[in-house]
């Protein structure tokens, strides 16, 4: 018996919370994946069809579940961005995270050579 099990065999609060975390992540992942599928399905089938097929609530707009890239570990500056980046970052109140614009988008295309086959994970 696990040390976290109580004497009468019931699960401890820690185990309950662990199970809840596990289930919540898997459910949420399923929902995120379904939201992408729903995006495709919506174009062809409409809302009702999507709901009945997937058995989940309608997904939120993508911007509610994504995060802008930003450096880990440190706050963003209180002062406005310096000149070299100012055209790319929208003016914003203190400490709001910087918002990447088109030119700050992921993996700039101009330098992308042909992608290597995915033999190894690069990190």
């Amino acid at each position: 018996m696990s040390e976290q099990d109580s004497d009468d065999g019931r699960k401890s609060p820690d185990e309950d919370s662990e199970r809840a975390d596990h289930d919540a992540i898997l459910a949420r992942r399923k929902w995120l994946i379904a939201s992408a599928l729903a995006g495709v399905a919506l174009a062809t089938e409409g809302c009702d069809r999507v709901k009945s097929v997937l058995g989940i609530d309608q997904p939120p707009p993508p911007e509610q579940v994504t995060a802008d890239p930003m450096p880990c570990l440190s706050q963003v500056p209180e002062t406005p961005p310096q000149p070299c980046l100012s055209p790319m970052i929208a003016p914003q109140p203190c400490l709001a995270p910087p918002i990447p614009r088109a030119c700050l988008s992921i993996a700039p295309q101009r330098l992308d050579p042909p992608r290597p086959p995915p033999r190894r994970r690069p990190r």
């Binding site: 890239p69 790319m88 400490l95 910087p98």
Partner: peptide, 11 residues
């Protein structure tokens, strides 16, 4: 406020 990993972006 939340952010994401910036590696591979200009951030």
């Amino acid at each position: 406020r939340f952010g994401g990993c910036p590696i591979g972006t200009e951030m």
